[in-house]
Every structure is written in C-alpha cells, then in structure tokens.
Design a protein around this nucleic acid. Structure first.
Lengths: 202, 202
DNA sequence: TAGATTGTTAATCGATTAACAATC
DNA sequence: TAGATTGTTAATCGATTAACAATC
C-alpha cells in the first residue's frame, strides 16, 4: 500500500513541478488525497529523510527521490503479448509514453500482423518470443492474449527469463515466485461495484 | 477487501459446482487462496450462517448466497463508452459473457462506427448518450475514451443518472459521492512492479 | 526568537489469526 | 458416541493516527 501511495505522490509531484511549485508540506499532500498528514510523512520518511523541518519538502528533490525508490530512474523495456484490440489499446496507452516505460516489442501469432510496426515497436511472431525477449533485454511483459493461451504464453515468458508480468487475461496463472506478477481482474472490479449497487438499493 | 474475497470465492464455488463437488470446508477454500481458514469463515459468516458444523458448506447453497450478496442474482445492464481498441477489447471480454453483466450499448463519436453492432449491442452516437442511458436502464458505464474526453463523458454519465462507473482513462475524474466509482490505473500497477524489480536487483 | 513543519514515538484502530465451545 | 468443522470470542498483528520534541 505504501508503494502504491508513493506512485500517487510521484505523479502529483510531477504536476506540482510543472506548475512551478517549489515546496509542499505533508498536510498539503494529504489534503489532495484525503490522507492523514502523519501517514504521508511516515510514507516518505520510510526511505530516508527527505523533508526540511519548518519548510516541508522541496518538490523537485522529493520527486527525484521517490522516482529512484520506485526504480523509475531507469527506463524499463517492456513487451505486449497479443496484438488484438486489448494489446493495441495498451500499445497506444498514454501511460507508457511517460518516459519510465518503453514498449519495445509486441508478440502475436497472426502472420498478417507480424512484421508491422506499432508505435515504433515491431510485431514479432510468438514462436520467436523467447529469443527476442533475451535479445532485446525485455524485463516486463503485459499479457493481453485470450484466456486459452494465457498460461502457455506465460510459461514461455518465464522460460525466457522475464522479470515481471502484468496479466489482463481472466485466468489464474501459475507463475514462479521469483517473477513479479500482477493480475488485472475486471470481473472483481465489476462485482465489487455490483455489491455496492445492490447494497445501496436495499 | 472482504467483498473482493467474496468475489473470488464465488468464482471458485462455480468451478467446484461444475466439477460436481457437493461440500467444501473453510480449510479447503483457504488452501486454494493462501488464506487462513478463520478468515474464510469470518468472511462467510459476516452475512449469515451458511455453513453446517461438522460438514462444511454446501457448494450450491453457498454459491447462491454469495451471488445474492454481491448483487449478481440480477443481471446488470452496462455500457462501454468509447469504441476504440480498448472499448472493443472490453466488449469482447470473456468476463461479461458470464451472465451477471450484459453490455447493452456502446457509445462513440465516430460516424463510421455509429450504427454498427458489437456483440449484439448497438454503437450509438455520444450525443444521444443521456437519452439512451435512461431508455435502456443502463446502470454501469465503463469509460474507455481518451484522457481528454474522460471528464466530459463522465459528467454526461452522471447527469444521465448512471449508478456506477469503471474508468480506464488515465485521468483523475471528479465524480459525485452517490455514484460508485473505480479507477483502473495501469501506471500504478506498472510502477509497483518496477519498485520490486529495482528492490530485487539491489 | 516565534512560527512552521518535520521525523518519530506512543496510542488507536481495524483486520487477521488462534483457540474453542457449539453442534452436525 | 467420536470426529469434523462451524461460528465466534479473545489474542495478535499491522497499519493508521495523534502528539510532540527536534529543528529549520
């Protein structure tokens, strides 16, 4: 949870920096996200002493520190697996454009797609995935293939030495402990909303 | 958190039912998700007494109860706003097909798309959104438009009386308290992965 | 020096887990 | 009755918040 909040702070600090704001207090940050100022200070102090008593935090300084903590000072090379609608949507996603992540390849089986380029990245045949992951030093893969092929693709990624996987397929994937893994589960999000709708009308 | 777990249990129970399993114990459920059996029992007992001492839980009975608690005994009518790659991916998403959610409309500005059908649902011009949301009793909207238009679209949805919104645009949207709202934020997921990558290599 | 705000300790709160009487 | 497993109370753990000395 602390890490997710750091990510949120980082984005906020970027905005503040663009707006020419020089310093910010834990209280001001807390107000922005409905948090407690003590919580903000604790989050920030956990990794070092970044603040100045009586002043607050220097925005650019703090932003740099958090960025480094999140490992965003180096650019991550990532691949999107599956060049269907979801894959294409992710390839064009504004979020990557932010210089921390760079999509350097897409993988797909469809011969009609292989060889084309998406956002300066080549679409490569899935059968070459292991080789290309290594050759292109790809650390992160986003799985955007149909449910049936999700586990197969994941096994290949793992075998190729991928470091982290973000999965969009609605399947419970088996991934070895050493590979960082996150599921984005649309059903859970919808069902949570559904619960509150049902509760509200009752 | 309890609600998210209920959603997970529900899916598991569905599988068990399909496999012809009649009863399941809190311990068996806990093992499946690396939880504590006391936690499972507490989650389930929170909404009523669904188990039988010495036996466990009857799978079909429990599944029905959880489904009702999550408001999944009635079908939810939803709309996807934005018929770009992301919208199309969501429309074809396996998760909806599950009978709890039914996409009954897509909205888009592009005249080339308006009038077509996707998965039995019509693509409707955005300007008619408010009217159609009401006419078609749409309760849930999924926002899959570019960042620039996300707030405008959201305001229209709210004005049309939408009950819940699931947002995929990387924007911090203002939504009144009475509308249930959930953000799916790809950047946070990626940055969290990035943190663990950085930590692991250090 | 007076005012502001941090970093941190201590108090509080909530969620998880252990333990066990109830009971099938 | 003996064995199994629930529902629930009490204990534990972790995360949030309040409070305040340190210090700019």
């Amino acid at each position: 949870m602390t890490i997710r909040r750091l990510s949120v702070y980082a984005r906020c600090l970027l905005h503040l920096e663009e707006d020419g704001v020089r310093t910010v207090s834990s209280q001001e940050l807390a107000d922005r996200f409905n948090l407690n100022s003590a919580q903000v200070r604790k989050d920030l102090a956990y990794f070092g002493e970044f603040g100045v008593r009586g002043v607050g935090y220097y925005v650019d300084d703090l932003r740099r520190h958090i960025t480094a903590i999140l490992g965003l000072d180096t650019q991550h090379r990532l691949a999107v697996v599956g060049a269907g609608n979801l894959g294409m949507a992710l390839a064009n996603y504004d979020g990557f454009a932010g210089r921390h992540f760079r999509m350097v390849a897409m993988f797909d089986d469809d011969p009609a797609k292989v060889g084309r380029e998406v956002d300066h990245a080549p679409i490569i045949a899935s059968r070459d995935m292991a080789r290309e992951i290594r050759a292109r030093s790809i650390q992160i893969a986003i799985v955007a293939v149909p449910t049936e092929s999700a586990q197969t693709v994941t096994d290949q990624l793992v075998a190729a030495g991928i470091k982290a996987i973000l999965n969009f397929a609605p399947a419970r994937l088996k991934v070895p402990r050493e590979v960082r893994f996150k599921n984005v589960d649309l059903s859970i999000e919808l069902e949570t909303l559904s619960f509150y709708l049902a509760k509200g009308s009752k």
